[in-house]
Amino acid sequence: MVERVSVYRAPTAAADADRIARWLDERGEWAVDVRGRFLDDASDELARGFARARVRSPYDRETGSEMLGVVRYEERALENPERAGGVIYDGLRVQDALRERLPRGERSPEHAHVILLDRVLGTWGEHDGRWHKRVSVLGWPALVSVPGLYEAPAKPEAYYREQGRRALLSGDPPPREVLENEVEGEFLIEDDPRTTEALAGYVLGAVHYLETGEAFCDDERCRLSNPHRQEGVVRAQLREPEFCPRHAERYG
């Protein structure tokens, strides 16, 4: 059983760790505390860990590069999070690198560590031989990607049709911001004011996995589900009911 949950802040104001912790505190018997950004006080070895976790290509299973320029980029990204972007990281390798940084006295299954990250995480799909962006990587520590909330679940079909149409006309894909403002549909965008509320469900899902071993709920209306499309995220995380009947008994 999980007795304590530590939630680590992200550098973005869109993700309010204190609000998430208060919401989480109301849904279990565990004690919840909020801590500073996990990637503060970074070491050279952590920069190398991120460099080794970098996804090279959507269809290349091998990851990482320890070229000096790549490691220097990761050092700068750790010091200045706002400069990071455009890179996907192997979520499992990042998880391994961060696990080594957990306080030695807090390395037990009863203490859940949920780290809000400013990096885009992915996992390799054996079924189709490609990387897939993820909002969360379950386990210990659990990782929840703030940019993954906007990028991992697929947007409405109209978004991709308009993206292709504009690319044909101009020769280049249009800026994401243009499409987000012009395409109708339900989806979350960068710095969305609904970010904190949506992420709370993913944080609970990470703790639920450590408690029960259940990765995701099959009911797409439940906050413990794992929607693959943005419309599903909005429905599961931002609409009533919060939980399916089974999980409402536990967390409702």
Rank of each mutant, 00 (worst) to 15 (best):
A13K: 14
G69A: 11
I20F: 04
R72Q: 09
G49P: 13
I20T: 09
G49I: 12
A15F: 10
R37M: 03
E75G: 02
R52G: 13
R48D: 15
S43H: 05
V32T: 10
Y59W: 15
A14E: 13
F38M: 03
L78V: 00
G69N: 12
P58T: 11
E62G: 15
G64L: 04
V70R: 03
D40R: 00
L46Y: 12
E26P: 00
I20D: 08
R61L: 09
A14S: 15
R54N: 14
R76C: 04
V70H: 02
F50I: 12
G49L: 12
R19V: 10
Y59C: 11
A13I: 15
T63E: 07
S65T: 10
A15G: 11
D16E: 07
A51T: 12
F50T: 07
Y59P: 07
R35Y: 05
P58Y: 04
A51M: 05
A13T: 15
A17L: 01
D25V: 03
W30A: 04
G64V: 03
W30K: 05
E45M: 11
D60F: 13
A47L: 08
L46I: 08
A21N: 06
P58F: 03
R52W: 14
D16I: 08
I20V: 15
V71S: 00
A21D: 10
A17W: 04
A53W: 13
E62R: 15
M67F: 02
R52S: 14
D25G: 13
A17E: 07
E66W: 03
R37S: 04
D44E: 05
P58V: 07
E45V: 15
D44Q: 02
R19T: 08
G49Y: 15
L68E: 10
E62W: 09
E29T: 12
R54L: 15
D25S: 11
E29D: 15
A31Q: 13
D18L: 08
E75K: 08
I20C: 14
W23F: 03
D16Y: 06
A15P: 11
R61A: 12
R52I: 06
E66A: 08
E66D: 07
M67H: 09
R22K: 10
A21K: 03
Y73R: 08
V55I: 12
L78T: 00
A51G: 02
V55C: 09
R37P: 07
E29A: 11
V32S: 09
D18C: 05
R72H: 07
V55S: 12
L68N: 01
W23S: 00
A14P: 10
W23N: 00
E62N: 07
R22A: 09
R27N: 02
R48F: 05
R61P: 06
A53K: 14
F50S: 11
R56E: 12
G36A: 05
A42R: 01
A17M: 05
E26M: 00
D33R: 10
R61C: 03
L24P: 07
S57P: 05
L68R: 09
E75C: 00
S65M: 04
G36D: 11
R35A: 03
G64R: 04
M67N: 11
A53G: 13
R76N: 10
D16R: 10
E66T: 02
R19H: 07
V32W: 03
E29H: 13
E74H: 06
D44L: 02
D41W: 00
E29R: 10
D18E: 13
